[in-house]
């Protein structure tokens, strides 16, 4: 499990590879907060290579969403597979996040 970060124009794109769970959520949180600290304001987290997410992973996404918003930034999520969509629907987090079907659509939505 790992996270890769790259820039696409003004957007910081984070790929979550593997699981986003209690054992690695802090790593994702710190990487995004570091970028926020550097002045970045547009973030896209792409889940096309993600296995599963647990409650603490969801909690980190909620936390990052708040912190980015507090700094006047925006967060988008993209490429949730059917199981991840179910997870977001069960927890009603699909109502909290802006979720795009593809990375391209997410990038266009900023």
């Amino acid at each position: 499990m790992s996270f890769s970060i790259k820039k696409d124009g003004e957007v910081v794109v984070v790929d979550v590879e593997g699981q986003l769970i209690v054992g690695n959520r802090q790593e994702l949180k710190q990487k995004v907060l570091d970028e926020l600290e550097r002045g970045e304001r547009k973030f896209l987290i792409d889940f096309s290579q993600t296995g599963y997410i647990d409650s603490s992973g969801l909690g980190v996404l909620v936390s990052l969403s708040k912190k980015i918003r507090e700094q006047g930034g925006e967060l988008r999520l993209a490429n949730l597979n059917d199981d991840l969509k179910t997870l977001f629907e069960l927890t009603k987090l699909d109502t909290l996040f802006q979720i795009a079907d593809t990375r391209e659509r997410a990038l266009q939505s900023f």
Binding site: S56, G59, K66, L87, L90, T91, K92, L93, L96
Partner: peptide, 22 residues
């Protein structure tokens, strides 16, 4: 219930809920 409007933006409180749902 982490899905209520007052709880949905909480960072915690979904663990047992998910165990029961899944």
């Amino acid at each position: 219930d982490p899905t209520t409007p007052g709880n949905v933006d909480r960072e915690d409180g979904r663990g047992l809920f998910l165990m029961r749902k899944l």
